[in-house]
């Protein structure tokens, strides 16, 4: 039987190392998430209590259903919080290693910037910057390739949405100067 050789190979130059130290344990993250959910449930519960969570003449008031949902959410979060601390042997494992966290932030921060820039420059210019910057700095791809790809991508998006399908996107000063 012929063994077909591997024919498609893609490398990852900035891959996270396997032995990178932990940045956070699962238990810590669980505790934070459950506490946030608990606080969220209490905040919404308060609003619904203010709106009226009882019965009017014509059935339940508008806060009735959401108030009890808040109670259920708070209860389940408390249970989760308790379980995270009581089951000591579990949950001590790594939530994310430092290398992984670095990589996740490498995506998250550009995305955050992209959303902020969209407000000022419009989505198309912001996407040129995001795609080119990401390819060049994180993918270590040649600058001209990155710029060309990002420009073609943004142009095809513009043609698809703005011209072909009439879906209006946030636009900035450059599109305005070109007359769109």
């Amino acid at each position: 039987m012929p063994i077909s050789e591997t024919e498609i190979v893609v490398d990852d130059p900035t891959a996270p190392a396997d032995n990178s130290p932990a940045a956070a344990t699962t238990r810590t993250v669980k505790a934070v998430v459950y506490l946030l959910l608990l606080a969220f449930a209490m905040l919404l519960g308060f609003d619904n209590w203010r709106n009226g969570m009882g019965w009017a003449k014509d059935g339940p008031q508008s806060g009735y259903v959401p108030f009890y949902l808040c109670a259920i959410l708070a209860g389940a979060s408390l249970y989760g919080l308790g379980a995270a601390f009581l089951r000591r042997q579990e949950g001590g494992d790594t939530f994310v290693t430092r290398d992984q966290l670095r990589r996740v932030m490498q995506v998250f921060f550009p995305t955050f910037l992209f959303v902020a820039l969209t407000q000022w420059l419009g989505i198309y210019v912001a996407s040129v910057l995001l795609v080119a910057g990401f390819m060049w700095m994180i993918g270590r791809i040649a600058l001209w390739k990155s710029l060309l790809t990002s420009f073609l991508f943004a142009l095809s998006m513009f043609l698809t949405f703005e011209i072909a399908f009439d879906v209006i996107m946030p636009k900035g000063p450059i599109e305005a100067a070109l007359g769109f």
């Binding site: 996407s127 795609v131 990401f134 390819m135 990002s150 991508f153 998006m157």
Partner: peptide, 12 residues
């Protein structure tokens, strides 16, 4: 490479 695909998915 994923570095090219990831930002395009974000934009989409």
């Amino acid at each position: 490479p994923f570095a090219a695909i990831a930002p395009m998915i974000v934009v989409s």
